[in-house]
Design a binder for these strands. Structure first.
Lengths: 240, 240
DNA sequence: CGAGGGTTTGAAGTGCATCAAATAGTGTGG
DNA sequence: CCACACTATTTGATGCACTTCAAACCCTCG
């Protein structure tokens, strides 16, 4: 069991480059759990005990405003880490987390994280790198929301889902339902539907349910990225 | 000279809590320069040599899209640090920096920064804390852009300019010209002007040029923060 | 006084949200 | 395998917020 967790942790960018001893230390205090769709892992403002690494499934991070609106912070899947920043927030979770597709999730006590940061220089540096990567992503996100319109945001999202390897074609499967994609991109489901239609007309992609076929990635990229400061393939903005 | 820089560095949150030896090491390789309005400090994509700490004046960080639009990343003043993240970006500046109000700026070679991170555990931890604070700010920023309308965003901006100390009244001076405030808040100058008008009607603030008088902070806060997940005074979201 | 920037105002257009309703899709029990 | 219930998605109609383009205004400074 512990060994499985060890191997798995190594796959996450968050822990990449760490020595085996560190990974092992963390695995021994780690727990793996299954959760079904809809499970609320924690609520913003709650006292934080652990942070999490996703092994499978999807998790939505969000906040709610005083008058009931919801802002989706992020939607994460395998190898992503969340809840770790609460150690800088007085051990309070800064957002809520809900399982949106059945998930297997590893939890590790925050005390173990603090311990590594305090006593393990390599760990602190690794976390710094990871934090910086995320920070860069957020800057991109702000830019996208400011400068791209709905069809362009969808196009950009699709591009990031493609495996860069392909020549000029690609087939993409939406990772979760369209309503969720819409919220991830900061728009209404209706807007998403219509914007996808416009994107289709503008770039010749083919939409069949949750599957999307792209003939000319070039064309999609030109349409979406003209309003963005970084050109496709959006540099190295891979996830945590 | 070096001593002046030392004292100054200590004031920045970025260096807070560091021991004198560290501060001293950094000061010896630091340089202070004066810049006039309009000076372009560096351009996105350029090879990064140094990072910067502002002693006085204002600096705008921004990026430009392929079709010429500009996205303002941030507008910074005294004690703020910028350009430091390029060490995680292959020594490339991820944005451009322009002086928008005559400024005194300290520059420190990135090599010195890397050196501290590699060899000084306390420094790495301090930077982690600073990074986390900034990350949190960005999350707030995304939320504001998504959920608040123009008048609310202005209200929120004003609230963050007030010294929390005051009872229920405050007088605020806009830190830079209104066009810049508008871009900082992600709106057009015309929209800013009109939205400020609406905010005036809705909350009873008084606008006299660049000076704004608030009688009931309560009222302003209620108007602006209802669409936001964190209540005024926006927790501890003070700057770097 | 006059030039030039910043700021405001007006009019018109665009994009997204909202509300309402139709349609497609999925899983259930018979 | 079908009918039903329920949800996801699409489509239509309308409204509001912000942008855009244009022009007026204001203020400062030579």
């Amino acid at each position: 069991m512990t060994e499985m967790v060890q191997n798995f942790l190594k796959e996450s960018l968050f822990f990449s480059g760490l020595d085996d001893a560190t990974i092992k230390r963390l695995s021994t205090v780690a727990h793996l759990h299954d959760y079904e769709k809809g499970k609320l892992l924690f609520v913003a403002g709650e006292r934080a005990q652990s942070f999490f690494i996703i092994r499978a499934g999807w998790v939505k991070l969000f906040r709610e405003t005083l008058d009931g609106d919801q802002a989706v912070v992020d939607i994460l899947t395998a190898r992503h880490v969340f809840g770790e920043t609460s150690i800088f927030e007085n051990d309070i979770y800064p957002y809520s987390a809900e399982v949106v597709e059945p998930a297997k999730i590893v939890s590790i006590p925050l005390s173990a994280l603090k311990n590594e940061i305090e006593n393990n220089h390599a760990f602190a540096v690794a976390m710094l790198t990871s934090m910086s990567r995320y920070r860069r992503q957020q800057e991109e996100e702000i830019e996208h929301r400011t400068l791209q319109n709905a069809p362009q945001r969808i196009g950009c999202f699709l591009l990031r889902l493609t495996d860069q390897a392909t020549d000029g074609q690609a087939r993409v499967n939406l990772p979760y339902d369209k309503t969720l994609v819409a919220s991830r991109l900061g728009m209404q489901p209706e807007t998403f539907s219509r914007a996808l239609g416009k994107l289709k007309d503008a770039t010749g992609i083919r939409v069949k349910g949750a599957t999307i076929e792209i003939d000319k990635i070039e064309e999609l990229s030109e349409f979406s990225c003209s309003a963005c400061s970084s050109e496709f393939p959006c540099k190295d903005l891979k996830r945590r």
